[in-house]
Amino acid sequence: MQKIINKANNVVEEMLAGYIRAMKDSVASTENDRVLKYKNAPVSGKVGIVTGGGSGHKPAFIGYIGKNMVDAVAVGEIFSSPPAQMFYDAFKAADAGQGVACLYGNYAGDNMNVKMAIEMANADGISVKTVVANDDVPSAPKNERNRRRGVAGEILMWKVGGAKAAMGAGLDDVIAAAQKAIDNTRSVGIGLSPCTIPEVGHPNFKIEEGKMEVGIGHHGEPGLEVAAIETSKEMAKRMADIVLPDLPFNKNDEVVVLISGLGSTPMMELCILFNDVADILDKAGIGIYHSYVGNYFTSLEMAGVTLTVMKLDEELKKCIDFEADSVGLRQFER
């Protein structure tokens, strides 16, 4: 295991300590050492945006704390949901009296802990509503969409929900926009090498040299198939063939494309893949309105990539165009 750590069982604590010191211009600690918030949260008059999840996905989740983005984040152990108490404390850190939109990914632990946290918040008079991301196409068939995992599409959900809240929308409108964002979004991942949870000390799954796992999850959950590694063009086609028919995306649609590395794949390869994905979309007559290419949602040091596509309408375009300032996503209004 080649890692820059001190104690394997203390990596989350030490990561947070370092993160807060490095990013003190945008994030602040709270009374709960596992809850981070935007330095200006709660933002007066604005619906609070909260998310949370296991660690190991940098810049998700804490990297999306910032202006017009996420207000507070509950930070779990590596690949493990934060407990209810942390989600509850994140709700409190984000609530300015306008209610809280909790936008998170569809995993059993997160579902349970968020549900318990909402009961605690309601007892305190804090109104919390949720959107559960389920953009990962390979994780369940289309008729069981409610079983699908949330992956990199969560970033677009936060971008849209965060912008809508910053525009002054009420809780129901923020929830509706974030729900529309994820309903219009589909993702797929390809894994090229495994990752190691420091405390486990060895990879808990294998991808043989020369192979790739199509449909892999953000924690190494097995995908649809293990195939011989292909060229970027072939991978792009394979991913597009999974993502595009599922919504489906049609000719003349305008979309956001988000390509995220899974941790150790160089930016160069992400650009090569983006070029091939853009060719496929051009040929299909699907317009790329905005693109994000980089390490947006990773799985420790896994090699590989996720492709996420979101179909736009006028409301979503406005939200995507809105200024955002967070460590993981920073853009000027266009």
């Binding site: 296991g54 152990e77 493990s80 934060p82 407990p83 209810a84 108490q85 349970m112 802990n113």
Partner: peptide
């Protein structure tokens, strides 16, 4: 278990 350990096993 409920306040310090998350996942699904913490609440369960």
């Amino acid at each position: 278990l409920m306040t310090k350990i998350g996942g699904s096993m913490g609440p369960l």
